Amino acid sequence: MSGKVCGFKARNGWQCDQQAGESGLCYWHDPNVDKRHHDVKADVEAWAASGRPLDGFQLARTNLTDIHLVNRGNKQGYSCQGADFYRANLTEAHCFGLDLRNASLMKANLLRANLNCTHLDGSNLLGADMARTGLENVDWGEQFKQERLAFLEKDPSRRQSLFQESEEVCRNIRKQCEKQGLFDVAGYFFKKEMRFRRYQMPTFSFQRALSKTVDLFCGYGEDPLRVVIFSVLVIVSCALAYFALGTTQANPIYPDLTGVEARFYELLNALYFSVVTFTTLGYGDITPSGFARFIAAFEAFLGSFTMALFVVVFVKKMTR
């Protein structure tokens, strides 16, 4: 062993002060040191309790069953950014509030572990066993590792593979959240899962275009507000078309108005007629003329479909 200090430096500037081996890294930060047969749980707990970060720790395949990494009495959990827990046994681990940003939990055993309030932005959760894992109030971040790499990847086959992995990660999280009654989180990851599936489709294909339309239209059945916004856009667009093409009113309400006021009330009539047509009420006091009839027929069809879809999406959302 040399007298050199470990060359690991965290993103926040923290420098490890442990003695380095031949690789220039210490026991904890050297990925080439096989720790699978080492009993490191107590040492890792002691390191965290000393106030030093666990950033960059290489703990692949280690047995960390029931490890306690909760920073008691402090709102901010221990920092474990960029750590490697590949295939580590974290069964019943206590990780409340742990900062696991950019960490690898790939194929880790997280059975009955407590990940409540953890930070997982940029982490790798591919193949992680999260059966009965506590996932309440988790800060999932903007992107997981595979998602972030996929949008940067230039090679089509590699990008396809990364999107498949991203879909698998989201599906796994969604299923676990559904089992725990975290339906809002499950809905969020269902949308991400469907989007990653769409990204795997040929760019110029009917399937991808249809998937994109469903996403924009209703967020894959998870966003009723999008249906409402779409409905308002259809009503306003058709109202402008009726105003431009003209409609016929059986009994004009304001026969004496002229100029700007008359045009304004014509616009209101067009908007009223558009709402009546979209909702398929069809009072008959105003009728379209010319090409506006075809627009009215299309709006009526679209309105009946959209309202039925809204009921389905809304009920699905509320009955959870």
Rank of each mutant, 00 (worst) to 15 (best):
A10Y: 01
Q15T: 13
Q18T: 10
G21E: 11
E22M: 09
E22P: 07
L25F: 14
Y27D: 08
Y27W: 15
W28Y: 07
H29G: 05
K35T: 06
D39I: 07
V44F: 03
E45P: 01
A48M: 12
G51V: 03
L59A: 04
A60S: 13
R61P: 00
N63S: 11
I67D: 06
G77W: 04
S79D: 11
Q81C: 11
Y86K: 04
E92I: 01
A93V: 01
G97D: 11
G97I: 00
L98R: 06
R101I: 03
A103H: 09
A108H: 08
R112V: 02
A128W: 07
T133C: 15
L135P: 06
E136Q: 12
E147R: 06
R148T: 10
A150P: 07
F151N: 08
P156F: 06
R159I: 05
L162Y: 08
E165N: 13
V169E: 11
I173A: 05
Q176M: 12
Q176Y: 07
E178R: 14
K191T: 14
E193D: 06
E193R: 05
F196V: 02
R197L: 10
Y199S: 12
T203P: 00
L210M: 11
K212N: 12
D223P: 00
I229S: 07
N251H: 13
Y254G: 00
Y254M: 08
S274A: 15
Y283C: 09
P288N: 06
I295G: 04
M307P: 00
